[in-house]
């Protein structure tokens, strides 16, 4: 609660701060414009490779480099968006509730698959990175790779991972899953749209869910459900696992 008030205070303080190139009144329009352009680029290209986060973040970085604004200054100017991360995690409960009827239909096999999938996704990645000699920073960022970004960022804060790397890893993982997931699974003779959606949702979160929705509504619903459940489950498991 106190933490939240401090955050609120720093957001309002940034707005009333003296004029500068990284003032929220400049940074917020920059973020919105970059998001909008990134979205347009994505919609006209129709490939997950150009997910709005790719174009949007590159655009922001370009402007920051030109205007010589450093990252902490930009973060300060974008405080309002950081402030919205918490409520957007809470908002995930709504689609989860709406898709919960599906769980009752498919029952325990789905829950078992979820549990194994949610553990497997970070575990396989961490083992590969460990074998290749990745540092602790890299390993920590990989633990939340298959979780939807707002939850991953909250987790990063909890376990002390670098937030930016976490966000990058999540986006890249989602893109890999969305681009290669459906064709890979079809080649493995997985034709059931429920399985297709669920596997994509567990491994490629929101970016995969958008792709799953293109396959069929059923596929998308399973993907959205898997994404929400996997996020909640991982959020409970990872801190526990890292604490031991």
């Amino acid at each position: 609660m106190n933490e939240w008030l401090t955050q609120l205070q720093s957001v309002t303080a940034a707005f009333t701060s003296p004029w500068s190139w990284h003032h929220p009144l400049l940074m917020l329009p920059l973020n919105i414009a970059a998001f909008w352009l990134g979205l347009k680029l994505y919609r006209s290209s129709r490939t997950p490779l150009l997910h709005p986060i790719v174009g949007g973040s590159l655009l922001v970085f370009l402007i920051l480099a030109i205007a010589r604004i450093n990252y902490p200054e930009y973060q300060q100017g974008s405080g309002l968006l950081y402030f919205l991360l918490g409520p957007s995690v809470v908002a995930l409960a709504v689609p989860l509730k709406q898709n919960l009827a599906i769980v009752r239909q498919a029952g325990w096999p789905l829950m078992l698959g979820l549990l194994i999938g949610a553990i497997l996704a970070p575990l396989v990645a961490v083992i590969i990175a460990l074998l290749l000699g990745g540092s602790r920073t890299v390993l920590l960022a990989l633990t939340t790779k298959s979780v939807t970004t707002p939850v991953a960022l909250a987790l990063a804060q909890e376990v002390g991972a670098v937030q930016s790397l976490t966000a990058g890893v999540v986006a890249f993982t989602g893109i890999v899953g969305a681009v290669f997931g459906p064709s890979l699974l079809r080649r493995l003779k997985v034709t059931d749209h429920r399985v297709l959606g669920f596997a994509i949702g567990v491994n490629a979160h929101a970016i995969g869910t958008v792709r799953a929705l293109e396959i069929s509504a059923l596929c998308g619903a399973f993907s959205a459900l898997a994404m929400g459940l996997c996020g909640a489950l991982t959020a409970l498991l990872i801190p526990l696992f890292l604490a031991t």
């Binding site: 973020n31 986060i53 973040s57 973060q75 968006l81 991360l85 409520p87 957007s88 908002a91 966000a167």
Partner: peptide
């Protein structure tokens, strides 16, 4: 809010270029 999710986590993602 969920439609604007990409905008909301944009600042966190931009940090990747500063690593």
């Amino acid at each position: 809010l969920l439609k604007l999710l990409v905008l909301i986590f944009l600042p966190a993602a931009v940090g990747i270029y500063f690593l």
